[in-house]
Write a protein that binds this DNA or RNA. Structure first.
Lengths: 239, 239
DNA sequence: TGCTAAGTGGAGACCCTTGTCCACTTAGTC
DNA sequence: GACTAAGTGGACAAGGGTCTCCACTTAGCA
């Protein structure tokens, strides 16, 4: 599926577009989401204007680049639901998603970040979350997943994994696998130690957090997204 | 201990310096390390020049601000070593350190980040790491900590916690506590499931990683501070 | 009180981003 | 081959960061 954004393009333009996406995918994977647009353009052998003509904002480019990875995520969860053993499905789904995050520095950030423009993708993600909740239910019913596991703990796990991937440079894969192994070990039903309450924040909540320090696409000076006034008045027109 | 950087200062200057540190501490805690120097100056009621006169770089300010928190970290581990029950010591040390990270958005980043200038602090941190390794040994000897736990897993845990804290905004404390509970549950000796190998990266390694995406102090567009040429030629004058 | 070195604030240099504009080039059709 | 709409690249605007410079103010001492 060579992207529907490329229909009706002149042959050379289409080639350029494809190269841009390809280069961006590689750069995002290697260096995270904050590689500058100019670097992408240069690597693709085009000017910035060309890049911006195809993708009016950086967000649009990121969205396009990760669209199929998002899709892959959804089908990972779907596959997990199809597994007759819900616990095995649960574990492999988590392992695969975290593996994808570890293999691509940009993807983890993109997954956790907000894409206000990309409604399509948001819906995908929400569907995946729904499916995961169902998977959770089944794994609990099978008596393999501890009863006090909250579906919101998926957010916890993803953020933790994101931190590990971001911090461990070359060793991201190994580090991520180990973290996941530890956590899955703790998710099993036999684990009876009581837990503190789950954080009252699903992935959805995290997304619109004004202080999402995991660096979404929008950089410092972006739009005034509706604040949920956590802190004190603070007054001074800061930052 | 009102900081040795303040000796011989005129009374008013000293007052300003103290206010700067105090304000910076609060802002870093609330909003992370990337609050601009100008904002700190404004909140402290001084001009940027004054700020830069006392702290020649942002790094210097961060170092000063977190010096005593680093110290507190070290004594947390010392306390843990003093506990007759090494497993309890191990758990409370981890809980306290992660709690400190969760309570202060800047601290986690600072802890994981590199401070090439702050030799003093690096030494502190290294000492804490040594002490933690000893704690690990004892907890294993007591048969409470799983044998395949690697001291490097502390780095894993801290990075994971850092990710959670960064991503969960207001709920950082709750989220962090839950993550830690999960992980400690998995660290116990009764947990027999085999683990994938540990990431071959201690905190030390992470520190000098050229791609430390956990956002150390130095930002992208900073000044021409003498770079420590860590990385390869890299070719294209990128980024 | 008056002197002076220490301290100060604000303008601005400099760099890095994202995104726009416009004169030029070129693919594709007749 | 010539025409034209589509496509292009590089300069540049706008805005955000760190850090510097320098004319002015002021604490502290005699």
């Amino acid at each position: 599926m060579p992207a529907e954004g490329a229909v009706g393009l002149r042959a050379d333009a289409r080639q350029n577009r494809d190269r841009i996406v390809e280069v961006a995918r590689r750069l995002f994977a290697d260096r995270g989401l904050d590689v500058p647009m100019a670097a992408i353009a240069r690597h693709a052998g085009v000017g910035v204007a060309t890049l911006y003509r195809r993708f009016p904002t950086k967000e649009a480019l990121v969205t396009e680049v990760f669209a199929d990875q998002f899709e892959a995520c959804v089908s990972v969860v779907d596959d997990a639901l199809a597994d007759p053993d819900p616990w095995r499905g649960f574990c492999t789904a988590i392992e695969k998603i975290c593996g994808m995050q570890a293999a691509d520095r940009g993807f983890g950030t993109a997954f956790v970040a907000a894409f206000p423009e990309a409604v399509e993708i948001e819906r995908e993600r929400d569907r995946a979350i729904q499916a995961f909740a169902e998977l959770t239910r089944r794994a609990k019913a099978a008596g393999r997943l501890r009863a006090d596991f909250s579906p919101d703990d998926l957010a916890l796990l993803l953020m933790a994994n994101c931190g590990v991937v971001a911090g461990s440079a070359g060793e991201a894969g190994v580090a991520s696998r180990r973290l996941v192994a530890y956590l899955l070990g703790s998710f099993r039903a036999e684990q009876a130690d009581p837990l503190p309450p789950p954080a009252r924040l699903s992935l959805h909540d995290v997304l619109d957090s004004p202080t999402s320090a995991t660096r979404p696409v929008r950089r410092a000076g972006a739009g005034p997204t509706a604040h949920q006034g956590t802190t004190a008045p603070q007054g001074t027109g800061d930052r």
